[in-house]
Computed example of a mutant assay.
Amino acid sequence: MTLPTETTARLHNLRPVGGLPTSSGEWVRDDLMWRSAAPFAARAHASDLIAGLGITCVIDLRDRGERDRTPGAWRHDDLAVREMPVFDDRLRDITFDGLPELYTYMTGDFAPSLVAAFAAIAEQAEQGVLIHCTAGKDRTGMLSAFVLDVLGVDRALILDDFAASQSHLGPEYLADLFADADVENLPGIVAHRATASPPELLADALDALECEYGSIAAFLLAHGVSQAQLESLRAALVVQGRRPKMPDAAATADQPR
């Protein structure tokens, strides 16, 4: 789906989770599940634009401290917001040397809250759902990968989709994220952690889960997702046959779902 320029200009890393083939020759819809970075204050009117895409539910994966930076960011009569902090409001207290260690925490100690967010996606997907954290790459990227994996998308395509965040998170994102800091003189490691989404990072995390549980679906089921929720997600997002021609976002932005 091609997004109108004004939409992507007001919400970093906004893109559908879909538009990809499955290993069985089906396609994942690209008009129902979306992902993005946080709606920073400088990105005005994001709520109207998101609702215009047919999204009815926003799942906010951030901790309370992160949410406090964007108070009242989602304000729209047609949007329900679910606050589901993956790190249980304890992200500030986690010490980690790099993103691989953070991912280990995410899928280990915080697996129950991560999987609870997946269950919420499954419940809301048919009505249109947006998931986001701060950058829309780590917590959001992991959950997007889970969705694509259980729908049968090839691993190489999942990794490509994950890595795409790096091209969507540039200087403008850093300027919004560090609005009160000198962006040009930020330590390199800070900027790297804020924008990096190398495919091997996700590959290693998924491989570790599959080694322990046998599959991503088995990991999800072991932490509370039901088989009915997996089937509901598939029914909502997977379509048969050739890739469908989805409505253009620019043409449907003002149309109700």
Rank of each mutant, 00 (worst) to 15 (best):
K245F: 03
M142C: 12
R43Q: 07
L220P: 03
L233W: 06
G170C: 05
R257Y: 00
G170A: 13
G170I: 06
M246T: 11
C133T: 02
D180N: 04
P199D: 09
A249C: 15
S24Y: 13
L159R: 01
L177V: 00
I94E: 03
V183I: 05
A236T: 06
D68V: 07
E172L: 10
A196W: 02
I94D: 01
G170W: 03
S215R: 09
A250R: 05
L79Q: 03
C211F: 13
P171N: 11
A179C: 08
D109Y: 06
R90G: 00
E184P: 03
D30H: 02
A9M: 10
G98R: 09
E231D: 15
F178V: 10
I94T: 10
I94Q: 04
A217R: 11
L157P: 03
S36A: 15
G54L: 00
G19R: 01
L237W: 12
S24C: 05
A80I: 08
D182T: 07
V28E: 08
V225H: 05
V58C: 02
A228E: 12
E210R: 03
E184K: 09
S36K: 03
E26H: 11
V225T: 13
D48S: 14
W27V: 07
V81C: 14
G170R: 14
P21W: 13
F178C: 01
K245W: 02
P198N: 12
A217E: 11
G54Q: 02
F110N: 00
S24K: 09
E123F: 06
L221A: 15
L177K: 15
T70I: 10
R92V: 08
D68G: 15
A250H: 07
A208Y: 04
T195N: 04
L151W: 00
L61N: 09
L32N: 06
P85W: 02
